[in-house]
Computed example of a mutant assay.
Amino acid sequence: MWYLVGDIGGTNLRLAAVDMAGNLQARSAHPTDGLTALPEVCAALCAKMGSAPEGVAVAVAGVVVDGQVRMTNADRSISRDDLAAACKVAPSEVLLLNDFEAAAWSLATLDPAKVTYLQGGPEAQPGPRVIIGPGTGLGVGALVWHGNRPTAVPGEGGHVRLTPHSAEEIDYFRALVTLWPEVQLGDQLAVEAEAILSGTGMPYWYRAIAEARGEAVDLEGAAAIFAAAKAKSDANACRAVELMVRYLGGVAGDLGLVMGARGGVFVTGGVAQQNEWIFDDAFLAAFNAGGRHSTWRKELPLGLCQDPDFGLLGARNSLFVHRDQPLPD
């Protein structure tokens, strides 16, 4: 007996078999490139395991509506019925989750050895927990408890409002909405947070800063921009990442305040895990900049979650709780 779990982001499609004790076993990984059909790779994993799973839970980077999800940053749709047919299970045995709903579920069994704390310590603290993840997009989720039972709170916190924080930044935002008008919120000089706080948004943000300064756009792709900022070899890359870090810290702190996250705020995702150097004193200062509630924010544990399997583990945890099965230790 086994379960199938999946984590489908804007860049990678990952599956795993889970035994009844909760251990990840056989794995399957593919690029999220529009060429790989999720039902087919699920069927292939089932064939490898030699039987149908007892249940399926798949986390997808998009909004789940009526058993279907269209991915936010990839041109594909996924349905519960298609997955059920591919895995030869009833549709009622398939859970479709938002990717950061699953990320929130992962906090129920968080391994402190895979967290680097910027504030607070590894001892688990009671209270709600928030997870925010700059990756291909920007994901946000929260975990709360009803008695002893954890429950994930899904949402689209990655699309909250960002506005300029200084006169200098006004020109950058104007250039950004000219380059990428879809991310502007209303007719104001405001953009959704994902437009800057993600691997997809960073090239637009870098270009906006360079063009606002009347300078050449010398770099392509988020990885090159972060590398140049780390090496201090490109002034516009340095400024783009510096501002991104401040915005990310502020948004993370705001979300911690909104949820009353006494259990901690955790940062993860591909951009975060590949660029741990950005989480410096400026990030922490922005997280704690809460005016009259700065002291309150300083009491929130704040950690970098370095577990690459957080999505798969969250899908597993959701499935176990859904089936009234005890969570793994």
Rank of each mutant, 00 (worst) to 15 (best):
G135D: 08
A167D: 15
P112N: 13
G135L: 06
G139D: 00
Y117F: 14
T163N: 04
V130W: 02
Y172H: 15
T136G: 08
T151Y: 07
I170C: 06
T163A: 11
I170E: 09
P150R: 11
P154G: 05
G120E: 02
Q125E: 14
Q119C: 07
G127N: 07
V115D: 05
V160L: 08
V130Y: 06
Y172R: 02
V130L: 01
P112M: 10
V144M: 10
P154W: 09
I131E: 00
P134L: 09
R129S: 01
R129F: 00
P150K: 12
P122Y: 09
D111C: 04
R149T: 15
G133Q: 10
A124Y: 07
F173R: 01
P112Y: 02
P126R: 09
L118Q: 00
I170H: 07
H165Q: 13
A152I: 01
E156K: 01
K114E: 14
R161I: 13
Y172V: 08
H146T: 13
I170T: 11
V144T: 13
Q125R: 15
A152L: 02
I132S: 08
G121W: 06
I131R: 01
V115N: 12
G135Y: 03
W145S: 07
P150N: 04
N148K: 15
G127M: 03
P112L: 09
L162T: 01
A167L: 07
T151G: 08
V140Y: 04
N148R: 15
V130K: 00
A152Y: 01
R161G: 10
